[in-house]
């Protein structure tokens, strides 16, 4: 499937495009952060009570904060300085924001990538079959898809989460078990039900796009040629229909990774997540403190923005490189 030529296109497109490099750097750093969160983290992300003696949270290192305190019936303001021990400060219950940020990256990417994979695996075959065969098959499958589309995705996701519960899978963290990061949580929480739910609300998009592509491709003469050669429907779908519909599917997938990261954040924000180690959950925590302690919500927010931008830039790069009609180096042309 991945020919030398596609590899060549990918590299040449990558060399030329600053944005592609930026996207890879962004996504790669978030990926590494998530992967090596236990090593990079300075504190156990669940550990509370990282406050100053008066019980006030720390602002990020280099900033200071005027914290209102009740003392003898009066409100007095205490100045709290950031400390290098908590680089990005601590949240309302005194948890280290930097460490939680790293673990949040892990959750976001895990849900974004596996949710998209699952949605693609569900939606693309359905769409290809519906579009290629048309007729009653198409009618049947697409009515189901229409019903799914009729619900706003967040509402549907909330309903499904409510119905299924928030099943999570605890995966032993190999880095911690191997002894590289003492004091960190020994199991990483994989919000399995969230992944299933986001896939259930997004597969329809993949089905729709794949169907549209398949409908156009089935009328191409190369499909007729393959049929006149005696190729089976399965072969035609695998050799012609799928590869030729891949570009919009890949573009859609990258958009959906970003959308699913946002959806996961929304679910966590609303309290429907399997884990508290999530950027969306953090934003919800910091929401009440935005006027004074803005960093509690803003820092995970920046994380979401960077992840979404990174994923989209990579999507652009893949789209440009995978379409054989767009020449990587401006060469080619008709012979």
């Amino acid at each position: 499937m991945i020919s030398d030529r596609i590899k060549a296109n990918l590299t040449s497109e990558f060399r030329q495009s600053v944005l592609a490099k930026l996207g890879v750097v962004l996504l790669l750093s978030i990926l590494l952060m998530g992967l090596f969160a236990p090593v990079l983290a300075t504190h156990n992300p669940h550990e509370q009570g990282h406050t100053n003696d008066a019980g006030a949270s720390y602002p990020p290192y280099g900033l200071s904060d005027e914290v209102p305190m009740f003392e003898d019936g009066d409100i007095t303001y205490h100045s709290v300085d950031g400390t290098s021990e908590h680089l990005l400060g601590t949240n309302d219950i005194g948890q280290d924001i930097y460490s939680r940020f790293l673990y949040g990256a892990r959750t976001s990417l895990l849900v974004g990538l596996s949710g998209t994979l699952l949605a693609t695996a569900m939606g693309v075959p359905v769409g290809l079959v519906a579009g290629y065969f048309g007729g009653r098959v198409d009618d049947g499958l697409m009515r189901v898809a229409d019903v799914m589309l009729a619900f706003p995705s967040l509402v549907l996701a909330l309903a499904l989460m409510g119905a299924f519960g928030r099943g999570t899978i605890g995966i032993p963290d190999p880095i911690v078990l191997a002894g590289f990061a003492d004091g960190m949580p020994e199991t990483a929480t994989f919000p399995g039900m969230v992944v299933v739910v986001v896939a259930l609300v997004t597969w329809v998009w993949f089905a729709r796009v794949a169907r549209g592509e398949a409908m156009a491709i089935r009328n191409e003469e190369y499909v007729k040629a393959a049929r006149s050669l005696g190729a089976s429907h399965a072969t035609i779908m695998r050799r012609h229909v799928l590869p030729n519909s891949l570009t919009p599917i890949i573009v859609l997938a990258t958009i959906q990774v970003a959308a699913i990261i946002l959806l996961e954040s929304s679910l966590s924000y609303l309290g429907f997540s399997g884990t508290t180690l999530s950027w969306g959950y953090e934003i919800q925590r910091g929401y009440d403190y935005l006027p004074n302690q803005w960093w509690i919500a803003t820092i995970p927010g920046i994380g979401i923005v960077l992840a979404v931008i990174g994923v989209n830039l990579i999507g652009d790069w893949l789209r440009d490189a995978l379409d054989p009609n767009i020449e990587g180096e401006g060469g080619g042309g008709a012979g």
Binding site: S3, R5, E220, E221, Y222, K224, A225, S228, L229, G230, R239, H240, P243, N244, P324, N325
Partner: peptide, 23 residues
Amino acid sequence: TDFRRSAQVVFQDPFSSLDPRMT
């Protein structure tokens, strides 16, 4: 299968009759 082998077709539009993703 035998018939498919014995009877072939050349199409009108040379731009649509070849899969753009195949060499």
